[in-house]
Simulated scan of single mutants.
Amino acid sequence: MKVKLRLFQKYLLNRKIVLSLFLFFALVNLVVGYVYQLPVERALLSIAISGFVVLIVGAIDFIRFYEKHRLLTHLRQRVVIGSMELPETNQLIEEEYQKIIQEMQEELLKLENTFEQSEQEILDYFTTWVHQIKVPIASLHLILQTEDSELSDEISEQLFHIDQYVNLILQYVRLGSSSTDYVFQETSLDELVRENIKKYAPSFIRKNLALHYEPITLTVLTDPKWLSFVIDQLLSNAVKYTNQGAVSIYLEDQQLVIEDTGIGILPEDLPRIGERNFTGCTGRQQKTATGIGLYLSKQIIEKLGHRISVSSVPNKGTKVMIQFSTEQLKLL
């Protein structure tokens, strides 16, 4: 009721010129009658008849005004509005506005098509670049396999990091692409975790870190490629920021937990973990930290319908938990 009353007030403001003219001519009618000494009843009757006509016409006009406002409000709440869906009008100014809207929609559609084409070209370029750069990286790995020295081990470690960064930039571009698709299927968490553990085995050995892993008898409905990327990033951070002690991977209350005994995260930095380009105190200490890995992990987890949470104590370690919804869980 209040909404209709406010709308009626706006309607009166829009028709204030018509109302002002009616009041003006009513006053003129009274003045003319007074000047020519005509009966007052005649002037009042004329005003009453005119007022009745104005009231009827105004009621019909307000109903049309209300229906048009309701339709426009409904269209405004929609994501896409077609120019043909706008209410019909016989007013020249409104027709011109609708033509402007149609031209703007056509221009916007052209810009969207151009943007999508440019976005796809960038994605194709990065995909090609990643595959090309992986060839010399794989070749260097093969060459280093014939060497058995501390230097070759160090070079292999750095090549592994380069390979990670290459994959990171590709996933960053893919995540922001409108054409990114997700293929959900029943996935064994144990297989995903074991695949990533194998990749980091040399890093564990090189840093003399212990690995505590409990087999995970849990299947989840997810996209294995994207979830594997998240596990890879979390395991990478655990190894990177742990200089002594161990990394533990286990299941707790149907949550996948990756816990380390590393440098930890300050309490004031925890709420901002996963923000774009945020590195916190750790980033200031570790000059190579970018925070992009956790940012991507958080974005991917949300798109997969999972949840991620982090708890940490400085100089004691960090605990990252991935929680799956009950609909996505299946015990083996």
Score class of each variant (00 low, 15 high):
residue 23 L to P: 06
residue 253 D to L: 02
residue 309 S to K: 03
residue 108 L to Y: 08
residue 291 G to W: 05
residue 145 Q to W: 06
residue 35 V to N: 03
residue 190 D to R: 14
residue 266 L to T: 11
residue 256 L to V: 04
residue 208 N to D: 10
residue 48 A to Q: 03
residue 48 A to E: 02
residue 143 I to G: 00
residue 286 Q to C: 03
residue 43 A to H: 04
residue 147 E to K: 14
residue 37 Q to C: 02
residue 98 Q to F: 12
residue 183 V to A: 14
residue 9 Q to V: 13
residue 311 S to A: 11
residue 69 H to L: 00
residue 302 E to F: 01
residue 265 I to D: 04
residue 19 L to R: 10
residue 137 I to G: 10
residue 54 V to Y: 09
residue 104 M to I: 14
residue 251 L to A: 03
residue 52 F to V: 14
residue 51 G to C: 12
residue 223 D to S: 05
residue 291 G to Y: 03
residue 164 Q to T: 14
residue 82 G to H: 15
residue 82 G to F: 15
residue 15 R to C: 03
residue 315 N to V: 01
residue 200 Y to N: 11
residue 268 E to G: 00
residue 47 I to C: 08
residue 217 T to C: 00
residue 15 R to L: 02
residue 298 K to Q: 14
residue 61 D to F: 06
residue 16 K to E: 05
residue 8 F to T: 10
residue 168 L to V: 09
residue 138 A to E: 15
residue 44 L to R: 02
residue 267 P to H: 08
residue 300 I to N: 01
residue 118 S to E: 13
residue 97 Y to E: 06
residue 88 E to I: 04
residue 116 E to C: 00
residue 137 I to C: 07
residue 331 L to V: 13
residue 249 I to P: 10
residue 36 Y to F: 15
residue 166 V to C: 07
residue 179 S to I: 06
residue 88 E to T: 08
residue 243 N to P: 00
residue 331 L to N: 15
residue 158 Q to M: 08
residue 13 L to W: 11
residue 144 L to V: 10
residue 97 Y to W: 04
residue 80 V to D: 13
residue 43 A to K: 00
residue 216 I to K: 00
residue 67 E to R: 15
residue 157 E to M: 09
residue 180 T to W: 01
residue 18 V to I: 13
residue 106 E to T: 15
residue 57 V to Y: 12
residue 221 L to F: 13
residue 189 L to V: 05
residue 278 F to L: 13
residue 211 L to Y: 05
residue 76 R to C: 05
residue 173 V to H: 11
residue 39 P to D: 09
residue 143 I to F: 13
residue 21 L to A: 10
residue 7 L to T: 10
residue 300 I to V: 11
residue 192 L to Y: 07
residue 65 F to W: 15
residue 104 M to E: 15
residue 87 P to F: 04
residue 143 I to A: 11
residue 278 F to S: 11
residue 66 Y to N: 10
residue 258 I to C: 01
residue 80 V to C: 07
residue 171 Q to Y: 11
residue 194 R to K: 15
residue 5 L to P: 00
residue 314 P to S: 05
residue 15 R to W: 07
residue 175 L to Q: 08
residue 277 N to M: 10
residue 41 E to V: 08
residue 216 I to P: 01
residue 244 Q to C: 04
residue 183 V to F: 10
residue 189 L to R: 01
residue 234 L to S: 07
residue 48 A to Y: 02
residue 22 F to R: 01
residue 283 G to S: 08
residue 319 K to F: 01
residue 268 E to Y: 05
residue 309 S to P: 02
residue 287 K to R: 12
residue 234 L to E: 14
residue 72 L to T: 09
residue 172 Y to N: 13
residue 11 Y to A: 07
residue 294 L to K: 05
residue 224 P to M: 13
residue 185 Q to R: 12
residue 231 I to S: 10
residue 116 E to G: 00
residue 164 Q to K: 12
residue 147 E to A: 11
residue 96 E to R: 14
residue 124 D to A: 11
residue 293 G to N: 05
residue 74 H to Y: 11
residue 105 Q to S: 08
residue 62 F to C: 03
residue 167 N to P: 01
residue 213 Y to L: 07
